[in-house]
Design a protein around this nucleic acid. Structure first.
Lengths: 201, 201
DNA sequence: AAATTGTTTAACTGTATGGTTAAATGTAAA
DNA sequence: TTTACATTTAACCATACAGTTAAACAATTT
């Protein structure tokens, strides 16, 4: 249980952790209360129901996740520089907030209609910008021609999956915590290299 | 509800589907019974408890997943050919059995200790073989030097993630079913190309 | 001091759900 | 036909859990 923060903050921190580990159905209000160092009555005093609490956490997760995801295309530099910056920032982000993709993945797998929430929150995937950026890179001779959506899927996969599936991969490959931690760290560079190497004309 | 198959088979099919969509905690025995076209009493007649049924499904999933994953390194050909074969086979496999990685991921995220089951089932990741194969490829001038574990993580990520996170990606990127289906299909080649391009010396 | 707000305690309600049971019915083989 | 197994029906039990309530206490503000 956290010492500092307000009670509401401690609840949110606890809820994030529990919901991420167990999902909506698997989480227990009592457990969240325990983790926050309070009791169930107070938990309901702050958040009327489990669903409301979960929705709050999910919205917060999406609100952190998407700007991070879409933001790259706004910055300076050519496509190679953007890729490098994106990979570094994105792996750092998911490594520090592993609950974010995990929650969204689980919830949207169970309940695909909830994707509507994304549009309601005003996010729009910058597909046009992506297309344009890749085309510019090709024309400038910086990269070979590729399908933009394929490229972006590849990059996101390599950034997110190793963090998202950490327990599974460690379990299957028998890798210890420290080694894995270091691997994630080195991947902030190596994934960008891997992509950039592949894009050589 | 399926017409053919034995009752046990229909139960397993139903359980796979429900457990994949909702996870262990979210699944309902009644729902599994309905999907199998039988009643709850008969479901318990075949599988004593939810946990037993789930364990059966999970073991089955791991038993399908790991041989597919580790099998590549046994076949003929140089590393580039193996990568090409692996990507094609692996994406085909996960596309046809999306429940497999989904189940394992969710369960091992919640319950990392269950990774022990993998060792108990006699699977061992062929790390040595992977190392050796990559080193041979480097020595033969087929590929540039890379960290084998990084490479394998990249490949697996690009194969599994787009299928695993399909709902999330479609929701975020606003891609319709058919388009996505086609993308998965083309990725059976394009991912291999992407990797092989990256590995050029 | 009084009022407001945050927090605890502890008991309680209602419901969803896993699991059981027993009796009846169907079905196929011995 | 008898035996054994498969399946249904329908009721039932026990438990876990979300959510409520009321009374008391603590802390802060007015």
């Amino acid at each position: 249980m956290e010492k500092d923060l307000t009670t509401e903050g401690r609840i949110l921190t606890a809820a994030r952790s529990i919901f991420q580990q167990k999902g909506l159905a698997g989480a227990r209000m009592q457990e969240i209360a325990d983790e926050a160092g309070i009791n169930k009555a107070l938990l309901h005093y702050y958040f009327r129901s489990k669903d409301k609490l979960f929705e709050r956490i999910l919205e917060e997760a999406i609100g952190k996740f998407l700007p991070e995801l879409f933001g790259v295309w706004e910055g300076e530099g050519n496509i190679l520089e953007k890729i490098e910056r994106f990979v570094h920032r994105y792996i750092s982000f998911v490594a520090e907030n592993p609950y974010v993709p995990s929650l969204i993945l689980h919830e949207l797998t169970i309940n695909p209609e909830k994707a509507g929430m994304i549009r309601k929150m005003g996010f729009k995937p910058p597909k046009d910008k992506m297309m344009m950026e890749v085309m510019l890179g090709v024309q400038a001779g910086l990269i070979r021609p590729v399908h933009p959506m394929d490229l972006i899927l590849n990059i996101i996969s390599m950034c997110v999956f190793p963090v998202l599936a950490r327990n599974m991969i460690q379990g299957v490959m028998l890798i210890d915590d420290l080694t894995y931690q270091e691997m994630i760290e080195t991947r902030k560079k190596s994934v960008a290299d891997f992509v950039i190497q592949s894009l050589r004309p």
